[in-house]
Amino acid sequence: MRIEVDAPKCVTSGQCVMIAPDVFDQDDDGIVIVLDENPAEGQRGVVEESAAVCPAAAIFVIED
């Protein structure tokens, strides 16, 4: 599982940070930062939920 974000799409809602704080953070302007591009399988639930709920559809979970 690999995470890609389309940062220019980010609307700084911070939903992902609330759901998966070990994987996502925000910079001072609120734009998404990926802390862990290849999260452990145990993070799958929260990562997929972050992608699903992202109001900008800016998070992609890619299966390699």
């Binding site: 700084t12 809602s13 925000q26 001072d28």
Partner: peptide
Amino acid sequence: LPPKVVHGQR
């Protein structure tokens, strides 16, 4: 305001 300030208020 910076988004992080707002999120803390939720």
